[in-house]
Design a protein around this nucleic acid. Sequence first.
DNA 1: CAAACTCAACTTGTATACTAGTGCACAAGA
DNA 2: TCTTGTGCACTAGTATACAAGTTGAGTTTG
Lengths: 246, 246
Amino acid sequence: MLPLTGYSVSADRPAAIQIVERLRNAIVRLELPPGQMLSESDLAESFGVSRTPVREALIKLAQQGFIEVRPQRGTFITKIRPKELLEARFIREAIETAAIERIVGRLDSAATRACEATLKDQRAAAAAKDIYAFHLADDAFHSTLAQATGFERLSGMIEGEKALMDRVRILSLKTMPPFKRLISQHKAILDAVVAGDRQAALTQMRGHLRELLTTLPQASHDYPQYFTEKIDPGSDWAETHSGASL
Amino acid sequence: MLPLTGYSVSADRPAAIQIVERLRNAIVRLELPPGQMLSESDLAESFGVSRTPVREALIKLAQQGFIEVRPQRGTFITKIRPKELLEARFIREAIETAAIERIVGRLDSAATRACEATLKDQRAAAAAKDIYAFHLADDAFHSTLAQATGFERLSGMIEGEKALMDRVRILSLKTMPPFKRLISQHKAILDAVVAGDRQAALTQMRGHLRELLTTLPQASHDYPQYFTEKIDPGSDWAETHSGASL
DNA sequence: CAAACTCAACTTGTATACTAGTGCACAAGA
DNA sequence: TCTTGTGCACTAGTATACAAGTTGAGTTTG
């Protein structure tokens, strides 16, 4: 029933951690569809462990917003909530622009090379039409920039907010992947940061983050069962709910 | 041994949730000192439950950064890491100034009244020299402003970052509580937001958040056992590590 | 036929038992 | 005295069993 059957966890690491990783991956990639019910017993059987580590994994995922536990009823993959996505974008914009402010013109050579490497990975993934590899490289770009601030938890926070948005990204990437556009946006951000052009770097980052959700109305129209509410593609929904205006 | 002995959880709500609340409170108030080891068995006995709900509570607290689980060794209250506090301040400044941008000049009367109520609570707490009540009202002020953005998770995030800083706050409040100063800062922020003075609101909020950690060197000197590293009170540590310069 | 009741099969929450690994005290040896 | 080995008491991780609550299908009853 579940697309996880047959893959047991390995014994060299705590089972709960492995289960978190696997489930989170499956959720973000929509292999476990939003709204899907999860049974602790079934999961335990799938992973070849008891319910205990499964429960601990579910607690962590619930705290990250990927699942919802309804006592005595069941555990469910959270549906995509458009309002939550706008909030994630708001938070990312606040944090990532603040990070830009901090690193613009100060990126050392190691960090610069690391960012360039993610661009290279993205180009390779785009050429191979591998949306998951593309996704990983996209994660890496934003994480690398965040780590350059010297703060340790920043990249984790960004990844968390990012993951909430990624399900929509996957939906849109399936139909029309704007690989080149995203890569050039990343490159523009990096170039501005390296060049020390604060204003350009901020503008590029904002534009990049704001564009991520433009496909949301279309996605919610194509896959209504994955969303908590429907959005009229013709409306200016994202704008009226965004940070620009209240 | 633990200052929690004798207080059992009630049966009307899940035990794990109650344990999270109680432990988190005890940690933030330094009733459980940083570095202290926690035994799952002892906690279970103290709360009158089995290890299972205790473990689930500890998992949540670990994810929030309050405790650290070292496999097969023990569970410990995290020591205060100055770098992490600066990071929390960075994140709060990024998010709370973004929130200000969003609500300045648009605060409805209900939210305005709610903010004013927190000021009143703070004045009452200051008069009664009740630092915990003062603290609660302080939480409420920032949460109320965050909620005014219409975003739901924002106030929770701010509270999380705030809680990390609160242990230092408690240490300094014990010796010399700057009640009036903090209240007037809150008032200045609220006034500027209501008046629609964007620049003033941002400046006030930044100043307020930056001042919160000025007592950190003194606190780390007075209670070195609570910190992971020592800070020379005479140095410009906070400045050299803050967002202003890399 | 429709409404209500019953019961069985689920769900999550909690308790208990066991496993494997760590560290410390303490004794035996050089 | 210092080192080294050994065992015990402790830790977190996992498995299993049971408790309490929800849901829905099937039957009974009006």
